[in-house]
Amino acid sequence: MAHSDSKIDYIEFNVREIARAKHFYGAAFGWRFTDYGPDYCEFDDGRLKGGFTTTAPVSVAGGPLVILFAEDLEQAQSKVEQAGGTVSRAIFSFPGGRRFHFRDPDGYELAVWSDKGA
């Protein structure tokens, strides 16, 4: 089996405004972007690539929970809030670490986890 076979390779978000999505994810997580016309932008977090598109309606119902990693969970939460995100579940502990959930400006719920701290 190839190294990348059956691994998450790309995530795509339907967004209302590409510029707003770029601002939020750039400010909160330092992602880099490549524009491909007015309706599509690729993001790169340094490990995984994905895209923002306005070619389909935004849907916040269902779908996978995308979970990001942070060395400093409190700092990540602060950056999310400063960038315009809303914490939907405060930091909580689970076996192996801690995490919080948030909603981005388009209403998508994501989470950030860390194995650091207690």
Rank of each mutant, 00 (worst) to 15 (best):
Y10L: 09
I11V: 14
E12I: 03
E12H: 00
F13G: 02
F13R: 00
F13K: 01
V15P: 02
V15K: 00
A19P: 01
R20L: 09
A21C: 11
H23F: 08
F24Q: 02
F24E: 04
G26C: 13
A27N: 10
A27G: 05
A28F: 07
F29I: 09
F29C: 10
G30A: 13
F33V: 15
T34N: 06
T34K: 05
D35E: 14
Y36N: 09
Y36A: 13
G37A: 12
P38H: 03
Y40H: 09
Y40N: 06
C41L: 07
C41K: 01
F43N: 03
D45I: 14
D45C: 15
R47A: 13
R47D: 05
G50Y: 07
F52V: 03
F52E: 07
T53M: 09
A56S: 11
S59N: 10
S59T: 14
V60R: 07
G63L: 15
P64I: 07
P64N: 13
P64K: 14
L65S: 06
V66A: 08
I67W: 00
I67P: 00
F69P: 00
F69Q: 11
A70S: 11
A70G: 04
E71G: 05
L73W: 03
Q75D: 12
Q75G: 14
A76N: 07
A76G: 08
A76T: 06
Q77M: 15
V80S: 02
V80L: 04
Q82W: 01
G85P: 01
G85S: 06
V87S: 03
A90Q: 11
I91W: 02
I91S: 07
S93F: 06
F94C: 02
P95A: 13
P95T: 10
G96E: 04
R98W: 00
R99Q: 12
F100G: 01
H101P: 03
H101R: 15
H101T: 02
F102T: 02
F102G: 04
F102M: 11
R103V: 00
P105V: 01
D106F: 00
G107Y: 00
E109Q: 14
E109R: 04
E109I: 09
L110R: 02
A111E: 09
A111C: 04
A111G: 06
V112T: 11
W113D: 07
W113K: 08
S114M: 13
S114A: 11
S114F: 14
K116C: 10
K116V: 10
K116G: 08
G117E: 15
